[in-house]
Design a protein around this nucleic acid. Sequence first.
DNA 1: GATTCTTCCGGCACCGAGTGCTGTGAAGAC
DNA 2: GTCTTCACAGCACTCGGTGCCGGAAGAATC
Lengths: 236, 236
Amino acid sequence: MGTASTNSTKPAMRDSLIAAAFQLFLERGYEQTTVDDIVTLAGVGRRSFFRYFPSKEDVVFPDHEQCLADMTRFLAASADSDDPVVRVCDAARLVMRMYAENPTFSVQRYRLTRQVAGLRTYELSVVWRYEKTLGDYLRTRWADRRDGTLRANVVAAAVVAAHNHALRHWLRSGGEGDPLAEVDGALEFVRATWATGGQATDAPAEEAEDVVVVITKRSTPMWRVVREVESSLGEG
Amino acid sequence: MGTASTNSTKPAMRDSLIAAAFQLFLERGYEQTTVDDIVTLAGVGRRSFFRYFPSKEDVVFPDHEQCLADMTRFLAASADSDDPVVRVCDAARLVMRMYAENPTFSVQRYRLTRQVAGLRTYELSVVWRYEKTLGDYLRTRWADRRDGTLRANVVAAAVVAAHNHALRHWLRSGGEGDPLAEVDGALEFVRATWATGGQATDAPAEEAEDVVVVITKRSTPMWRVVREVESSLGEG
DNA sequence: GATTCTTCCGGCACCGAGTGCTGTGAAGAC
DNA sequence: GTCTTCACAGCACTCGGTGCCGGAAGAATC
């Protein structure tokens, strides 16, 4: 008989630590809460905390590791026929979906990370891993391009920026509205400029044969060369 | 009488700490070096270290604070006639210029940050401050646009990504070649997709006499021309 | 020239995050 | 029934970082 606690504490050790941590974080602040406070409230030993969370910051982002694995699997399951840009946009939607699953939790965590500099830094490292995952995927997809790496890095950064733009706007609103719709709107901005369904990505494959010759010095700044080429194209 | 140390230690306290720190970091690793080791080698008290550097990581990036202030001032001195995209690209060049001032130091630090996860995270927070500075500037410049904020965030992220792409490529090469030219080539990718057609502000006025001939078709996208010119410069 | 006041430095003592190790008890395998 | 395994608690320790205090210059005041 007894309480059901003995039945649920076996798998719920990690969850009870998260619950205790957030309860204390919200009522007295992150930096004012020690790990000892958390384990005391959760009723477990101090050593157990670091068994489940490698650092104090990790307890604030308990689900990102899983989400990152999901994104990696999602991209690995891509087909060659997929537009890479569309694919990474869909991958970014996975992250937004994770945030949207627990709106109140996401909003609470957002308010926390906005106040604590250490948590912002940690979140940055998490976001960087997402961006790196997207970049690695784009890099392999664009391995044949001359500027494949540059393009991959820029597009990955743009996708992450657009996603974060929509995410933060939704979080600031307190979790109102449809976050998936918001992120789609923001990602459309990226898609429109780079997806092959758009226009600007690859050579239009025209057969204009005219050749432009530009002579310049090594010392000339790149933008000046570009202006030279542009003006040559314009007057032709 | 006495050594000249008493004469130089007065203003060189901070520099001697940096020198001692890097000497130990390079010969035995960052995590294997304690702050006590650094201050012992520098011959100063432990408390003095944290007077000049708020954390152990800060000694690895001693010049970024100044560079961020320079960027802020540079953007604040913008004119309304400047193309915002061109302006932030030029602002990014400031950062590359700082790295280029001490190539060996930059390369050593790069090898360090690649190995130590904690330093990578710290660097991320530094980069984030640059990106935020660029984003804030673009946001005010595009306050009248409908999607001004989204556009500002995406462009700022793209500029930072392009800059880091060129920077890391230069650092991986061990500091060979012209980093300013590399970053110009990478930033041209960003400029070509978003700039409204303004022109760059200042000419770097470097000195090299060789002539480069670029032959291209009208149909070739501008970024591809730039890439071609850049690779030609690189292999020269 | 002796004085105060300021400033910079060193040396504690202390807190908290994170790690390695050991003992222990409960669950499962034979 | 014993033996193994695994998860947990507790302890001791390292190291980054801070607050506090005392002392040694150095400049300003009389």
